[in-house]
C-alpha cells in the first residue's frame, strides 16, 4: 500500500510537472472525445451544441441551440486556455450549465482532447 501510494505520488508529481502541451496528441484526443459523443457531434447539434467552429467562437453562439442562461451570460471565448479550464470542471467555470458532466480531470487527456478539437475543426466534416 505504502509503495503504491509513493508511486502514485511520483506519478502525480510528474504529471503536474509536464507542460500540458508537450505531449498533446490529437489521435489520443479522438479517443477521449468518445466520452463527449453522448451529447455532442462535430457537425450537428445534439443534446450539446456542435463543435465545428469552436475555436475563437463566443460561448453560446451556435444559432438555434438552446443554451442555458449561465452559458449565454458567461462571456467566454473558446480557445485552448478557456477550454482547458472549462473541461477540467464545467460547472465550476460555468455554474448552472446544462452540461452536467464532471469533466476530464487528467491534464494529459485534456490536452489531447483539446488538440483533437482543434484539428477536427479543420477536418472535412467541419469544412463541408
Amino acid at each position: 500500500m505504502k509503495l503504491r501510494q509513493r508511486v502514485l505520488a511520483v506519478m502525480l508529481a510528474l504529471g503536474a510537472a509536464a507542460p500540458a502541451s508537450a505531449a498533446a496528441d490529437a489521435r489520443r484526443g479522438e479517443q477521449v472525445y468518445k466520452r463527449c459523443l453522448a451529447c455532442h457531434a462535430l457537425a450537428y447539434d445534439r443534446v450539446g451544441p456542435r463543435h465545428c467552429g469552436l475555436f475563437g467562437r463566443r460561448a453560446a453562439s451556435v444559432f438555434g441551440f438552446g443554451y442555458s442562461a449561465a452559458m449565454r451570460h458567461s462571456k467566454i471565448v473558446w480557445n485552448a486556455r478557456t477550454l482547458d479550464q472549462f473541461l477540467t470542471d464545467p460547472k465550476k467555470m460555468v455554474p448552472g450549465t446544462t452540461m452536467t458532466y464532471d469533466g476530464v480531470r487528467d491534464r494529459t487527456e485534456r490536452a489531447d482532447l483539446i488538440a483533437y478539437l482543434k484539428q477536427a475543426g479543420q477536418s472535412a466534416e467541419c469544412r463541408r
Binding site: 468518445k34 466520452r35 463527449c36 459523443l37 453522448a38 452536467t100 458532466y101 464532471d102 469533466g103
Partner: peptide, 11 residues
Amino acid sequence: QGAVSAYLGAV
C-alpha cells in the same frame, strides 16, 4: 459508449 461516459460524469 457515450452514454456510459455521460452517466459516469453525472454520478
